[in-house]
């Protein structure tokens, strides 16, 4: 993620193999002793970063747990409004994309640029699908029915006075997760562009693919926790 590469102007496509970003032309930053060390450092950095992400979501899970304890009825009532089928569909979409992104890493390691591109594209489609389902089948119908967070809550048939709180936790949790989906998709798109234009990744140079994939797995992991907590447990 933080490799220092020369900032030379882009070459025409024909010269891709002589472009400094072509994977065989990549060196390593001057303050590392060798490329392996650089790769290890980047991976350690990414793992640390993922730890911080987990802790960020831990805060939300904590709020969820505490209010669930305080207002079990509101929580039960709230989760009844969620359709587990959409959640389940999205779970499948994300799990599948985790598999494709992992295959992408493998492809990069094998030097199969075409397979890398293919896998990345599928992953990105999954990301789009996830956000689409979330927005179109969940957020929009719910918001228009008045099932909104906090003081915006105006759903007339609420059973429990604390349901607005449930919706706050729901929107914050899934919203921040969706934001992470978008960030992850952004990262992967960048990898995709570099793979297409410069064939930037290969057996000796796949740090960026690997770290972005790690990030994507995290996004998946968080959803694996969010889904049962919000949709399945009443």
């Amino acid at each position: 993620m933080a490799t220092i590469d020369a900032n030379k102007p882009d070459l025409p496509a024909a010269g891709a193999k002589s472009h400094p970003l072509y994977w065989k032309n990549r060196g390593f930053a001057h303050h590392f002793r060798n490329a392996d060390e650089q790769f290890d450092a980047c991976k350690l950095g990414m793992w640390l970063f993922l730890t911080t992400e987990v802790l960020l979501f831990a805060g939300i899970f904590c709020a969820y747990a505490i209010f669930r304890m305080l207002y079990p009825d509101a929580w039960a009532a709230g989760s009844h409004h969620l359709d587990w089928r959409f959640g389940g569909l999205n779970t499948i979409v994300l799990l599948f994309s985790s598999w494709t992104v992992a295959s992408g890493v493998r492809a990069a390691q094998m030097g199969n640029n075409a397979a890398l591109i293919r896998n990345l594209v599928i992953t990105l489609i999954c990301a789009g699908l996830f956000v689409f389902i979330k927005l179109y089948f969940e957020y929009i119908p719910k918001l228009s029915a008045g099932k909104a967070p906090g003081t915006f809550f105006s759903y007339p048939y609420a059973h429990d006075p604390h349901e607005p709180l449930w919706w706050s936790v729901y929107y914050i949790g899934t919203g921040i997760h969706a934001l992470h989906v978008l960030i992850g998709a952004g990262l992967l798109s960048w990898v995709l562009v570099r793979a297409i234009r410069y064939e930037a990744y290969g057996p000796t140079e796949y740090t960026m693919v690997e770290t972005s994939a790690l990030y994507w797995h995290l996004v998946d992991l968080v959803w694996i926790f969010l889904f049962p907590l919000l949709y399945l447990i009443h």
Partner: peptide
């Protein structure tokens, strides 16, 4: 630090959207 990150984010939501997580009026704590 990530924990203060999410806390302050919730505070911002609270002020902007009155989500109620920390607001005793809405059952928050």
């Amino acid at each position: 630090t990530p924990v203060i990150g999410i806390t302050l984010l919730l505070l911002i939501f609270e002020r902007l959207f009155k989500v109620g997580i920390f607001d005793p009026g809405l059952g928050g704590d």
